[in-house]
């Protein structure tokens, strides 16, 4: 197996330009097979553009892109059969019944069934897996938001894809539907070794699901690493709170454990209600994005800095 076989997605110096505006500048990242990668970033950072280029729905201006070993701009139907796409808001086929639509979509994957991967997924099993068995005979248009979302995921999975794109999949889901969805993503990763590229605004979700996180801001990659690596990167953001002489005190320090040790050594029994909070992914994300935005578009130095720290 060569290096390329171990990669599901390879993006190198990807550029996208509309007229005179650059939407993506030299974006490079990789996704290994079986990995769950979260693409984070503020609105307008270029997440959707990036994912649409990978899906083969949008042409790039420059750079090299390979998805499952194929340039998406030249993707065949055979290539298409190996991936699933869940967009932000599907509202297609409103008159179709749930099971009918899923069975139709599945039938198009049947010719691509192999000895290793039986395609499509059994329709009734899949309906059960996404919890839509009771809705199987209902028209798609009467489904609730959460049910519709689960149907979209089911359609994305019906062909037993090697790679799934999930574009903000839990927007508008209630907490229980969200947790069910997370379980489903973990299941497809663990049972079928499916590679997942997910975009989200929900940092908690990214932390829970993703093996690795890439942050895109203003069309550039500003961070790439595991949740722990990104958090460690913004050392100095641990929060220490305590009460001393009836006064509530707060300090932000690089190493909260060392600070606490010293504090006790100095003040001893004077310290009450000590609370340590390690910097969270959210702190890291906000700090990284803030630095990018304050640099007024000239993100080159931050990029060098953050990449140096993480890679």
């Amino acid at each position: 197996m060569t290096m390329t076989d171990a990669l599901a997605i390879e993006v190198e110096r990807l550029r996208l330009r509309y007229g005179t505006t650059d939407v993506l500048h030299d974006v490079s990242f990789q996704v290994r097979r079986g990995e769950v990668l979260a693409l984070l970033g503020p609105n307008g950072a270029g997440k959707t553009s990036t994912i649409e280029i990978l899906e083969g729905f949008r042409m790039r201006s420059a750079g090299r892109v390979e998805v499952l070993g194929v340039d998406p701009a030249r993707g065949t139907e055979q290539w298409r059969a190996r991936m699933g796409i869940v967009l932000q808001s599907w509202r297609d086929h409103p008159k179709w019944r749930v099971r009918e639509l899923l069975a139709f979509q599945g039938s198009l994957y049947a010719p691509y069934s192999t000895a290793q991967v039986r395609r499509p997924w059994d329709i009734d099993d899949l309906l059960a897996a996404v919890g839509l068995t009771a809705q199987a005979q209902q028209p798609v248009k009467v489904l609730s938001g959460g049910q519709r979302r689960r149907l979209d995921v089911a359609i994305g999975l019906v062909g037993r894809p090697e790679l799934v794109f999930l574009d903000e999949p839990t927007t508008g889901l209630d907490p229980k539907a969200r947790r069910d969805f997370h379980e489903l993503v973990r299941r497809i990763r663990d049972e079928f070794e499916t590679t997942v590229l997910i975009t989200t605004h929900d940092l908690d979700e990214a932390e829970k699901l993703a093996d690795r996180i890439v942050i895109l801001a203003a069309g550039r990659i500003v961070a790439d690493g595991t949740s722990e690596q990104l958090t460690r990167q913004i050392a100095g953001h641990d929060e220490v709170r305590w009460v001393q002489g009836g006064e509530h005190l707060v300090r932000h320090v690089p190493d909260s454990t060392a600070f606490a040790r010293e504090l006790f050594a100095r003040e001893g029994a004077e310290i009450h209600e000590l609370e340590l909070r390690r910097a969270s992914l959210e702190d890291a994300y906000l700090s990284i994005v803030r630095t990018t935005e304050s640099s007024d578009g000239d993100a080159a130095d931050i990029e060098a800095q953050t990449n140096g720290a993480v890679r």
Binding site: F57, E77, R91, D92, I155, G159
Partner: peptide, 20 residues
């Protein structure tokens, strides 16, 4: 109508979907 509601895009996202 199918272009507006994404039915055609769904076909495009599926192997041989446009043909079918």
């Amino acid at each position: 109508a199918d272009r507006e509601d994404g039915t055609l895009l769904r076909a495009k996202a599926t192997p041989n979907g446009i043909r079918a």
